[in-house]
């Protein structure tokens, strides 16, 4: 069972994510949007969107950083006090995200305008996200070694997947809650191309910080279509 769930399924989902994203980007760029609904409702959104995004992005970044340098985290966590600090910050951010997510769900259910625009994909996405955040918080609260497990078990497992030599032994003995967290994360990745989640596969906003304010495109000059001209 674990062999399939943590040895084979990840590949299916990763391939789905990559192929699906490329397919959608090349065939239907028009649908590539964050589908913001702030225009329809912006009071509850404030209490949802800000905490949610800042909470979840910080946690995501932490996951990614540790993914590359697991040793550093393990060393840091060597002293219990530092482990507590790390777990505490993680849990706080998790609660921030959870609060935001609940506000967003509440908004989607109660606001008639937003509700009218909610698609089945949005509902599925919210279910995936709430499972992910709740199990993540579960790890942080009920298992003192949550962050160590990530660095010592999940990260090596992820690397084994990437190296095309899946080794499920790393995750086999983790508690159910943690397994759900890991498996759901993969579902989340596979889900990217099918929902508004594509908005997080963004490259453009980073360019904004370095490009000049104004953009001019020419049809008759070279390069033909897009030429960012600095007239500022």
């Amino acid at each position: 069972m674990d062999q399939v769930l943590f040895g084979a399924v990840p590949y299916i989902l990763i391939v789905t994510a990559i192929v699906g994203t490329i397919w959608r980007f090349t065939t239907n760029k028009y649908s590539w949007s964050s589908q913001s609904s702030q225009f329809l409702e912006n009071r509850t959104l404030f209490f949802g969107s800000f905490p949610w995004h800042y909470g979840i992005i910080s946690i995501l970044v932490a996951h990614i950083v540790v993914f590359f340098i697991p040793g550093v985290l393990l060393a840091w966590n060597g002293a219990p006090i530092r482990l507590y600090i790390f777990e505490l910050i993680g849990a706080a951010l998790g609660f921030l995200a959870l609060f935001g997510l609940l506000a967003l769900i509440y908004r989607r259910i109660t606001n008639a305008r937003v509700k009218a625009l909610t698609t089945s994909w949005d509902v599925l996405l919210l279910i995936i996200l709430i499972i992910q955040v709740v199990t993540g918080l579960g790890n942080a609260i009920f298992y003192r070694w949550g962050s160590n497990w990530y660095a010592a078990a999940a990260v090596p497992w992820m690397w084994s997947i990437i190296k095309l030599n899946p080794n499920v032994d790393f995750v086999k003995s983790l508690p159910l809650n943690t397994k759900v967290h890991i498996f759901n994360a993969m579902i989340f990745i596979g889900f990217i191309p099918f929902s508004r989640l594509v908005h997080f596969v963004v490259i453009n906003p980073y360019k904004y910080l370095v490009r000049p304010y104004q953009v001019v495109r020419w049809y008759h000059r070279n390069p033909k279509t897009e030429n960012v001209v600095q007239y500022k």
Partner: peptide
């Protein structure tokens, strides 16, 4: 144009018309 993080808006060099690239806009 200056505010768009995606660079979706642009001014056309030939006639100065300001357009919004629907494929690049990310809302």
């Amino acid at each position: 144009v200056a505010s768009c993080p995606s660079g979706a808006l642009y001014k056309r060099g030939e006639d100065g018309i300001v357009l919004l690239d629907q494929d690049t806009c990310r809302a």
